[in-house]
């Protein structure tokens, strides 16, 4: 049992290191290790390659790791909370909440906070609001599929509102929002990385604090409550952490579909356990591995065809959802 999990964790971690190195050093312009160290330790003017490493390659890799790991964890949280293998931040429309508020703030110019924090804040608040909406619906809807339909409707609703906003927005804002909507790991600069990592590690830490409630929720809400779980507190905490992950990632990368649905299922199939201490670690590493691999593929194919990230994850993710529907839910 444990042996199997250790083996998979070790293997996935090793693969992640390898693919990350590939991501960093093998691109249209091959870079060297000295560029890598220079990106961190050199203050004096940087050469083009060193600059490329510091301002593009490293932030992009970090975003791929944060995005993959974070969305996978958010998906795991949703799946355990709703006891539904088809749940995930994207299918439940939690991304849509981020999109809606980001659209409102970028397209209309309405701001909550200062410039950089503004989009992040809007995205997290949007994700939290839509998370709470889904939670409220889940109290009266018992079927797994119905909940997904509600998520789909939230998505359609958002899409409609965003379309209206887009038409009345200025051309420049319209373009920047459209690009954001395709999903991309390239929008992040080195200066934003510390803030992203702070949010990310905060959310990961919070997930580890939720291990006991998550393990209890596996028994079903009724049984968990009879074992002393405070349901209301747990639900709000789980939705909050999910909103932090989803909002953060959606703000910087745009919507990324299906990672949050597919990776937690894959992790569970590989690890064959319901102990969330292992599942959290597994989702972080396998999620990161998945998204870094996708991005390596995107970079590799860049000369032939331009693949938006969201399109690639959907091409892989959508058939996977059908597979799970047939195999598990029926």
């Amino acid at each position: 049992m444990k042996y199997r999990i250790h083996l998979f964790l070790l293997f996935a971690a090793f693969a992640l290191v390898l693919i990350s190195l590939l991501h960093l050093f093998v691109g249209q312009i091959p870079l060297s290790f000295s560029d890598f160290f220079a990106a961190f330790f050199k203050n004096s003017p940087l050469s083009t390659n060193e600059l490329l490493m510091r301002e593009f390659r490293i932030p992009r890799l970090i975003m791929a790791i944060v995005g993959g790991g974070g969305l996978a964890l958010a998906g795991m949280l949703m799946q355990t909370l709703f006891n539904n293998p088809l749940a995930g931040p994207y299918v439940l429309g939690i991304n849509s909440g981020s999109s809606l508020l980001v659209a409102l703030s970028t397209l209309t110019g309405f701001t909550f906070l200062g410039s950089q924090l503004n989009i992040v804040f809007a995205a997290i608040v949007g994700a939290f609001i839509f998370g709470m909406i889904i939670l409220l619906f889940s109290l009266s809807v018992k079927s797994h599929i119905s909940l997904l339909l509600i998520g789909l409707m939230l998505g359609s609703f958002t899409f409609a509102v965003v379309s209206i906003l887009e038409l009345s927005a200025a051309a420049e804002q319209f373009k920047s929002f459209a690009v954001w909507g395709m999903g991309s790991l390239q929008q992040v600069e080195m200066s934003q990385v510390p803030l992203i990592l702070l949010f990310f590690f905060g959310s990961v830490l919070s997930s580890f604090l939720l291990i006991k409630p998550l393990n209890m929720l596996v028994l079903g809400e009724d049984s968990a409550v009879m074992l002393g779980l405070s349901l209301r507190k747990t639900r709000i905490l789980i939705i909050s952490v999910t909103a932090l992950f989803t909002g953060l990632i959606t703000a910087y990368c745009g919507p990324i579909a299906f990672v949050g649905l597919a990776v937690p299922n894959i992790t569970k199939l590989l690890f064959r356990t319901q102990q969330h201490a292992w599942l959290i670690g597994g989702n972080l590493i396998i999620g990161a591995l998945f998204l870094v691999s996708c991005d390596v593929l995107i970079q590799y194919l860049e000369e032939t065809i331009h693949l938006p990230l969201n399109a690639l994850t959907s091409i892989i993710g959508a058939p996977f959802v059908i597979f799970i529907l047939i195999k598990k839910v029926r």
């Binding site: 049992m1 604090l209 393990n215 596996v218 074992l227 779980l229 064959r272 356990t273 319901q274």
Partner: peptide, 30 residues
């Protein structure tokens, strides 16, 4: 309380399942 029917949970071993009954006695991390 024991409910009338327990349908089983995928990937949850019997030992892990039974030990979840200790939840009221374990610390915040279970």
């Amino acid at each position: 309380f024991v409910e009338s029917r327990f349908n089983g949970i995928p990937f949850l071993t019997l030992k892990d399942y039974v030990s979840l009954g200790r939840s009221p006695h374990t610390n915040a991390f279970g």
